[in-house]
């Protein structure tokens, strides 16, 4: 079967293709996020004087992680949230925080990125870090720098290895 056989004029073909393409991409959840950067290995200072505790608070590099988030025009906005999960062992006294230290780069002049510039605690529940608004174009913010902070480090915690997984998720506002 072809279009001419069912009476669809040729100028409608591109439109049909576009509609099908958009439907297909929408079904696939086209907001995307990628996380680039090495794992953050926190190295507390050695304690050399009896009676002392660790300083307790440590910050990663200001661009420890680089996020790239994309929000298609049709969806107009995206919400980037963050949570952590033990991987496999963590201690609840170890408190992770996260902040956005820059906007990254974008070619979309009217698109905006908002929120997340002050440290906020990371919990085991998704919490909004920042949001992106797409205006008349694909909102793609590349290499958004992310900084992590860990506090609560103390000799009062059991010794051992602790690891958590910080998960960034993009979704609708």
């Amino acid at each position: 079967m072809n279009y001419s056989a069912i009476g669809i004029s040729s100028y409608l073909k591109p439109l049909l293709l576009l509609v099908l393409l958009l439907l297909g991409t929408r079904a696939n959840g086209q907001r995307t996020i990628t996380v680039v950067g090495s794992s953050w290995n926190v190295n507390p200072e050695p304690i050399t004087e009896a009676g002392l505790n660790y300083i307790g608070t440590y910050e990663s590099a200001s661009d420890q992680l680089l996020l790239t988030a994309r929000v298609p025009l049709l969806l107009t906005s995206g919400r980037v949230s963050v949570r952590y999960e033990p991987f496999p062992t963590w201690n609840n006294a170890l408190n992770l925080s996260v902040r956005r230290t820059g906007n990254g780069t974008t070619t979309c002049l009217l698109c905006t990125i908002n929120g997340g510039t002050a440290y906020q605690p990371i919990t085991t529940t998704d919490t909004e870090l920042f949001n992106i608004q797409a205006v008349l174009a694909l909102a793609a913010f590349n290499n958004i720098p992310i900084q992590l902070r860990l506090n609560g480090v103390s000799v009062t915690l059991p010794t051992g290895n602790y690891q958590s997984r910080v998960i960034f998720t993009i979704g609708p506002n």
């Binding site: 995307t32 996380v35 998960i167």
Partner: peptide, 27 residues
């Protein structure tokens, strides 16, 4: 749509690790 679907990653992750050693100091 195939490449778009392949790029449709809605989450990403990074690990944070810390090792707390055994300590016994007296003065």
């Amino acid at each position: 749509c195939i490449p778009i679907a392949a790029r449709c990653q809605t989450s990403g992750a990074s690990n944070t690790t810390i090792t707390l050693p055994s300590i016994a100091l007296i003065d």
